[in-house]
Structures are given as C-alpha cells and as structure tokens.
C-alpha cells in the first residue's frame, strides 16, 4: 500500500526498520502497553465489516493510537484513540497496522 510508504517517510528513524512497507508496519495488537502507533492502514480479517467498523471507531490512517492496558488475561486491550478509551480484542486489534511513534 502506498499510504504506508508515505507514513514511513514521515518517521525518519523507522525507514531502516524494514525493506518494504510491510516490514515497517506492525500489528497494533503487538504493541506493548504504553506504546503509541500511527495508523497506516486497516486490513480485513476475512470480512470487510471489521475494517469498516474500526475506521468508524476512529482508526483512520494518520491517527495516533496509544495502547493503554491489557486485561488480566492479556485480552482484550484498551486503546486510546481520538480522545477516548476503547477496548478491542487482540484479534481485531491485529487488523490495524501501525508504525510505532516515539513519544
């Protein structure tokens, strides 16, 4: 995806992280609590509905998301996106591809 390259470019420190766009992206679900990521793209998990709903909830490209905390059994996870706290299961959070942002 081209939008991915664009965002990688805005993060000069991250360009070396991987050769292609996918190398720089990480799944939001893989970020530890406290980390922040800028949304690059939202992928499908088999149905287009998940991607659409995640966008409705505020996971639009360019938005910065913070991982707030995980539930005691590691799932679900609370994220802070567009000024509010939202909890998603890891399976859904895996659809959001981000580049990590250093605070």
């Amino acid at each position: 995806m081209n939008s991915g390259d664009r965002h990688v470019d805005t993060e000069p420190g991250r360009t070396a992280a991987g050769p292609g766009p996918d190398g720089a992206h990480r799944a939001l679900a893989d970020l530890p609590p406290g980390a922040r990521g800028r949304v690059v793209t939202v992928t499908d998990d088999g149905s287009s509905r998940t991607a659409r709903r995640l966008r409705d909830l505020g996971f639009t490209p360019g938005t910065v998301v913070e991982v707030v905390r995980r539930a005691p059994l590691r799932d679900p996870v609370v994220f802070r996106v567009k000024d509010y706290d939202l909890c998603l299961r890891r399976a859904q959070a895996a659809c959001v591809r981000v580049v990590e942002v250093r605070p």
Partner: peptide, 12 residues
C-alpha cells in the same frame, strides 16, 4: 449474520 467485531467504550 456472521460474527461481529467486539468493541466497547470505557467511558470516564
């Protein structure tokens, strides 16, 4: 209907 993605707000 298929499965719906799970999401829930945590209001202040």
């Amino acid at each position: 209907g298929g499965l719906l993605p799970f999401h829930m707000e945590l209001p202040p």
